[in-house]
């Protein structure tokens, strides 16, 4: 479709680490995480026959991003309230007891305002899914930035805090079997804008420091299209000639200048990323929602998965 902006430096990429069975996609809100997650799941399903897309929430976003034509992808929706009940069953030994405890007059309102419990439960369900379906790539669409690092910290905090008991063991299991190198890879989705990239670099640092996991890939989404560079020069010359329609030419020149500035900024911020130790994939800017199959094709061209 288009030629994405490339970092200007040479040989900037470290040799990419191979990806683990579970891919956790992170990034700030609005960067297109769900679109990339769906594209990756479709690519994986098309190349290996099966893939699972995990979505936390009501399932709308993943369904929309996958589109109607991708039956090969199994779309697993984990709803917060169900998750607590399902994850609690093995802890309490039976569904009835779990229901009794969690439905208790005091527990119910407490669970309503205690999000860490739900996050732990949702991660436990991903762990179970990975254990039940070995060999199938699982793409997890994580919630937006700050919040998702907090998520990944919950099992470790729980383990340090609790010291013993079945809940401690659950935290420990999630840490060993899901949130460890070789089990899960972190992919961070970002945009080629200076400040978004700054946040991305901070996110990468806090992932490393606080979770012990690596950021294995950075996906740069919506890389802007190049307009013909000669057009800006021509429009400026038109303005300088002060002839007919010079006002309209000035408006066009302003738009082209803004695009040029956006591209220069994109290139500079991609350079900033490329000096760090991350492999990158680039996905071009589409004026409207791309289909998951298109995203899969773009990712394939970048060497994914």
């Amino acid at each position: 479709m288009t030629t994405p902006v490339r970092p200007s430096g040479a040989a900037l990429h470290a040799p990419p680490r191979s990806l683990s069975p579970v891919l956790l996609l992170m990034g700030k809100g609005g960067v297109g995480k769900t679109t990339i997650a769906a594209g990756l799941a479709v690519l994986e399903a098309e190349t290996h026959g099966a893939a699972i897309l995990v979505e936390f929430g009501d399932g709308d976003a993943g369904k929309r991003a996958l589109g109607p034509s991708h039956r090969a992808v199994q779309h697993v929706v984990i709803r917060p309230n169900d998750a607590v009940h399902r994850a609690a069953i093995p802890l309490f030994g039976s569904a009835t007891v779990a229901k009794l405890v969690l439905g208790n007059f005091a527990m119910k309102p407490l669970l309503g305002v205690a999000p860490a419990i739900r996050e732990l439960a949702m991660l436990e369900l991903v762990r179970q899914l990975a254990a039940d379906r070995p060999g199938v790539r699982i793409v997890v669409d994580m919630p937006a930035t700050g919040h998702s690092v907090a998520w990944l910290r919950v099992p470790k905090q729980g383990r340090d805090f609790l010291g013993s008991g079945p809940l401690f063991e659950m935290c420990d299991r999630i840490g060993r079997e899901l949130l460890s190198p070789g089990r899960a890879s972190i992919l961070v989705v970002t945009l080629p804008e200076r400040l978004v990239i700054e946040e991305t670099l901070e996110l990468c640092a806090s992932v490393r420091q606080e979770t012990g996991l690596h950021v294995d890939r950075i996906v740069v989404n919506r890389v802007p299209v190049a307009l013909p560079p000669q057009a800006l020069l021509d429009a400026r010359a038109w303005v300088d000639a002060k002839g007919p329609q010079a006002g309209a030419a000035a408006q066009l020149a302003a738009v082209l200048e803004a695009r040029e500035a956006a591209r220069a900024e994109a290139t500079a911020s991609l350079d900033a990323l490329a000096t760090k130790d991350h492999a990158m994939w680039h996905v071009p800017l589409a004026p409207t929602d791309p289909y998951a199959r298109d995203v899969a094709r773009w990712l394939l061209a970048e060497g994914a998965p």
């Binding site: 307009l227 013909p228 021509d234 329609q245």
Partner: peptide, 30 residues
């Protein structure tokens, strides 16, 4: 775009300007 018609139909327009206008207009239209 308010400038598109004035420029596209003008004799002083260049091939690059025409191409840029087409690309911008396609984006805008979608």
């Amino acid at each position: 775009a308010p400038y598109a018609h004035a420029l596209a139909s003008h004799s002083a327009s260049s091939a690059s300007i025409a191409l840029a206008l087409t690309m911008l207009d396609e984006e805008r239209a979608s």
